[in-house]
Amino acid sequence: MAEMTNVIELEHLSVTFGKRPILKSLDGALKGRAIGLLGPNGAGKTTLIHTLLGFHPPTSGTARIFGQDIATEAKKVRASIGYMPERDAFIAKMSCVNFVRLMAELSGIPARHALERAHEALFYVGLGEARYRPVDSYSLGMKQLAKLAQAIVHGPKLIILDEPTNGLDPPTRSRMISLIRQIRDGGRARILLSSHLLRDVEECCDEILVLKDGYIAANCNLEEERKANRKFIELETRGGDRKAFAESIGALGCDYALSGERRLKVIMQETVEIKDLYRLAFEHEVQIRRLNFKRDSLEEIFLKAMENENPANGENISVGNGNGRADNGGL
């Protein structure tokens, strides 16, 4: 799967319930391996997911998943998607393996392969030993894993996960996150992860879409952002000739700024490495007590997006626009 393929394209996508607009002319293209969908309650995250799945018809505009229109090619779109809903969802009085097998068959997998895939999916998510128990008897964490198994059993190209770590205890959460990362790194499926937990998104996603009041408040590539942040370094120094040390760093071609008595901020060049800084510090008898990469955390990005009072006025925030992905303006 080519890395730069558009996973989801939004084209003036609007959804209205009754007279209440929920999604307001969304535009943009999402390309990440794992896309985080963030936003406060009522921002339209779940509605966007449901619209992509064809549960709600768009009022105007459209969206495409892997180039297929969600309105005109709904079945093809859904065939390439695996969906893990937020709420408890299962088929009662059915063993987990039969439940996952049924879901595989409904996705088009022939009966003879569906059972095999169901077993594999359940072992993959860690429910192998409990697969013959009815899903009703599962704990919350196990039900979440069963939902993940049914979402991946048919090997979809896009897996939509709606709050996958909701209500999970720390070990189960960490297992869920590790599974998501494993799928992401495998490269055979893209992931759209909707979560309230910024930490989950930060751990799993390389691109985020922040929604606010039905608008796109931010769309940023976390991977690019992380790369960009690696250039900004803050040093805390003691002793020696701090000024000479700073000038020698400047001589390497890096911009620098002295702040306070001990702080030194440096913008690194591609050719300069951290060990060069240590070498210069040694030469100028300066002790480097602390070295911090400036990190524009997801929380900061999210808060910036939330501060933007009215993203509808074309003030759409786009952070870390490393691969020209600030193209959802015009909102």
Binding site: L53, G54, F55, K75, K76, R78, A79, I81, Y83, P85, R87, D88, A89, F90, I91, A92, K93, M103, L106, S107, G108, D136, Q150
Partner: peptide
């Protein structure tokens, strides 16, 4: 009713099934 009470409908309808 069993599908409705266990929220199973989204699981059916997110697949290529109308």
């Amino acid at each position: 009713s069993r599908d409705l009470s266990n929220n199973a409908l989204p699981l059916y309808l997110c697949r290529p099934l109308s």
